[in-house]
Amino acid sequence: MTAMDAYNFAYLDEDTKRMIRRALLKAVAIPGYQVPFASREMPMPYGWGTGGVQVTAACLTPDDRLKVIDQGADDTTNAVSIRRFFQRTAGVEVTEETEDATIIQTRHRIPEAPLQERQIMVFQVPIPEPLRFLEPRETETRRMHALADYGLMQVKLYEDIARHGRIATAYAYPVRVEGRYVMDPSPIPKFDNPKLDDSPALMLFGAGREQRIYALPPYTRVESLDFDDHPFVASKADHACDICGATESYLDEVITDDQGGRIFVCSDTAFCRSRQEDRQ
């Protein structure tokens, strides 16, 4: 008997799962709106994916195949830790292949392989409120969302352009959902933003510490905020992957020596590996 045998399927008790499930249905029905939920203390720290873990726990069935990535990689320590948590508490199958997964929990990336209709993406979100750094008060930002009053965000983006000649946001780049709610896509690089738009997969976002759940149903219109004369550009390092040669994937920069040497490699390890295998 392991320590986890004492816990319920997928760790959470049924009351908690029901509460999260009700919040998830509201989130799906109101795309981009942050539904408050009574986030629980999890056996991992706030800020380390407790929101994503609770959403995944509420969605998992015994038939699922789970993939967990952090920074695009399956083998980063926190991804390993979360994957093992669900292996132990839910006994579900796990995979590193994007195509084989039915639920993908992620921190900071969307996989390169196109998502499919039968898949659910679960994003770990640190600060779900896209207006938080412009207005720290929840009472104020809630009012702004209620009125769809996003002038403050427009002003911020415009000031960026005035100062830097471009919008100086590289990740967690705000989006507008179906022309209504402005939403934080979680700290994915803006390179990944276009993957949110019209995706065949359901996308769920969980912020544990901040007690919010939100969602993008499949085939939802998701636009990155921009201006006509400064259109959004999904940028990445202007290199090919030094391992697999991919030119269309998001790259990590790796320092290789103390002489300024560096290489660029795919941040999506499963994508990079499958390309290497194809080449052999």
């Binding site: 319920n8 399927f9 997928a10 049924e14 799962k17 029901r18 499930r21 998830l24 249905l25 799906v28 029905a29 509420a58 969605c59 998992l60 069935t61 015994p62 038939d63 359901l202 969602a215 149903p217 499949p218």
Partner: peptide
């Protein structure tokens, strides 16, 4: 078997609400 049956049931509800 509430934990497993309700999990499977919820996924059906989530699926139709999403689509």
């Amino acid at each position: 078997d509430a934990p497993r049956q309700s999990a499977t049931a919820f996924r059906s509800v989530l699926e139709v609400m999403s689509r």
